[in-house]
Design a protein around this nucleic acid. Sequence first.
DNA 1: CTCCTCATGTAATCCGTTACATGATTCC
DNA 2: GGAATCATGTAACGGATTACATGAGGAG
Lengths: 170, 170
Amino acid sequence: MSLRHALLGLLVDRSASGYDLLKLFNTSLANVWPATQSQLYTELNKLAEAGLIAVAAEGPRGRKQYALTDEGLAELRHWLTETEPQHQGRSEVLLRVFFLGVVSHERAREYLADLSTLFAEESADLRELERSIDWEDGDLAVYGRIALEYGLRFNAMRQEWADWAIQQIK
Amino acid sequence: MSLRHALLGLLVDRSASGYDLLKLFNTSLANVWPATQSQLYTELNKLAEAGLIAVAAEGPRGRKQYALTDEGLAELRHWLTETEPQHQGRSEVLLRVFFLGVVSHERAREYLADLSTLFAEESADLRELERSIDWEDGDLAVYGRIALEYGLRFNAMRQEWADWAIQQIK
DNA sequence: CTCCTCATGTAATCCGTTACATGATTCC
DNA sequence: GGAATCATGTAACGGATTACATGAGGAG
């Protein structure tokens, strides 16, 4: 049930249409909480029905500009402060590691080396993203940077781990 | 479609019943790919129907001991070597960080401090798990340790990040 | 004989993905 | 007038979660 709160969160600063939100998603939350167009529009209708957001203005081509309601902001705060984050990690990458015993040592090292490269690339992408963002001052700048720093440290850690793991085989 | 392969993987070393597999899951793969009892039994029936596993023996109380078939092992190898791992991370914890701007700086620091504690506890749990496992020699020992090391490094990184992030606010 | 563990299943619901479907407006 | 972009939706399907449901066998 987090897409719901992601959308509420994006609407705190500015009102926006589904189309706008989709683009925002793909450029900011995509790494943290991917969502498809279909899912997003469906969720917006549910949120409007629940009174957490409301259509503030309509535009051309049936465009609906949504704004956060007081109930919506309250719900977002409630979620942030009074509910526990679920943190069951699912990692297909790691699941595969468990079963590398069924392929040759060579093949296993190859798998880990590919991972190392992948993580390096992701690091580079994030550094590129960091440069491309217009970091205005404000909350979003502070917390956006903190989230990005997480990504950088995460990928660095994973790359070091993969390189270390290669040494452990045989 | 990874639960499928997780089950195949667990059946490589030994045949087992759904009940056995469920316990195995909860003590080894739970951190990497959680699955519920319901899901597991459903998937086992699908796997049997697809011919990737077969009932090797039946026991009391309707117990069905499943064993991997040749097709099952082939499918597992295919998955490991010829398909790309999906790695879209979803992190509710990070999603919340993005929106910490809607609560006070104090509350935000509190949130991050709680995370730091949580990560420390998870590290401790993993170290406990490491001690409790009977590390026989063999593939599973090597790759199980590699997966566990990932968890240890991951939690250490996250704890350092959370502590760093607290300093960034205000 | 009673309780605990073993053991398997089904149903309802929700979330996410893929694909399909449609049409208005703007720009050239 | 044609293409690109803006803009919203629905349907089908599959995977995951929760809850419900049942019963056999072993231990004391």
